[in-house]
Amino acid sequence: RTILERLQKLGKPTFLVINKIDSLPKAALLPLIDLYRQEFPFAEVVPISAREKDGVERLFQVVLGHLPEGERLFDEDMLTDQQERTLVAEYIREQVLRHCRQEIPYSTAVLVDIFDESEREPRPGTPPGQLGGLIRIAASIYVERDSQKAIIIGKQGQMLKTIGTDARKSVQRLLGAHVYLDLRVRVEPRWSERPEGLKKLGYE
């Protein structure tokens, strides 16, 4: 009742969402809804089962229907407001996690050290749809222990080569240009636990 009193003061549309209806007898659902409706004028009542995904789509549509339309913040053809070098770092990290799987924890970070676009412009006569010029990228993969570094590098550097090859293909599709990618693996002990480590790797 305390929560409902606070909601009443806000004067905003409020939904009653009842979860776990898969474990509730249907005969008990309607009396429960009536009980809550006597306490508060809910704009919508949406029974759901998150586990079974029953009613979840309706909840999404109900919420969407009550949201006011705001001003457009970005151009219609703009896919993201992230800088390219930020996306490149995430593409590389994706391949590290993909290939090393459970052997490398999620406390792995990638920092783009060099992003050289001086040769990015495609040469005259490059057919439409083909990759343009060349972008040179150097990036560091940071882990917290020497044992993790050894896993990412792999035997005779094979794992790092595989990560680099797949990351380069993804980055080329993103940037629409040929990419020279140089990867290094560095150890930053317990970086995810230290404020200075987080700041150094861009997680401020």
Rank of each mutant, 00 (worst) to 15 (best):
G125H: 01
V45D: 07
K26T: 08
Y36R: 13
I21T: 12
E57Q: 09
T14H: 06
L201F: 10
D77F: 11
E90T: 15
I141E: 05
P127A: 07
I18T: 04
L183I: 08
G133I: 07
L59D: 03
L201N: 11
P25L: 02
T126H: 06
Q158N: 11
Y91F: 15
G154Q: 14
L201E: 12
G11E: 05
L7K: 05
D81Y: 03
G164V: 09
K149W: 00
E204Q: 04
E52G: 03
P195T: 04
Y180V: 10
V187P: 01
W191I: 01
Q156L: 09
Y180R: 08
Q156G: 02
I48D: 01
T80R: 01
R136M: 07
R136K: 15
E121P: 06
P124A: 11
E204K: 03
P127F: 10
V62W: 14
L79H: 10
Q95V: 04
E57A: 07
P47E: 05
Q148H: 14
I3C: 10
E52D: 11
L64F: 14
H178W: 15
L30R: 05
L201R: 06
I114V: 15
E84K: 15
I3S: 12
R85C: 12
E69I: 05
R120Q: 09
V62G: 00
V88P: 08
V62Q: 12
V88T: 15
R173P: 02
D54E: 07
I153L: 13
G132I: 11
I48M: 02
E204F: 00
F15S: 01
E52R: 15
I135R: 11
L131A: 11
T14Y: 10
P127D: 11
L32N: 04
Y142L: 14
L10P: 01
A50M: 09
G154K: 12
S23D: 14
L87G: 12
R6C: 02
P25R: 07
I137S: 07
G176T: 06
F15H: 04
Q156P: 04
I21Q: 06
H99P: 00
F115L: 11
D34E: 14
A43V: 00
I153Y: 12
G157S: 04
T86Y: 00
R136L: 12
E193F: 02
R123M: 08
K199S: 08
L16G: 04
G11Q: 07
G65D: 08
I104D: 04
A89F: 13
V96E: 05
H66S: 13
K20L: 12
I21G: 02
L134Q: 11
A27C: 06
G157L: 06
V63I: 15
D166A: 13
E196R: 10
P13R: 03
L67T: 06
L198E: 09
D75C: 14
H66R: 05
P189T: 04
Y142I: 10
I152Y: 15
Q130A: 14
R98P: 01
R93Y: 14
M78H: 13
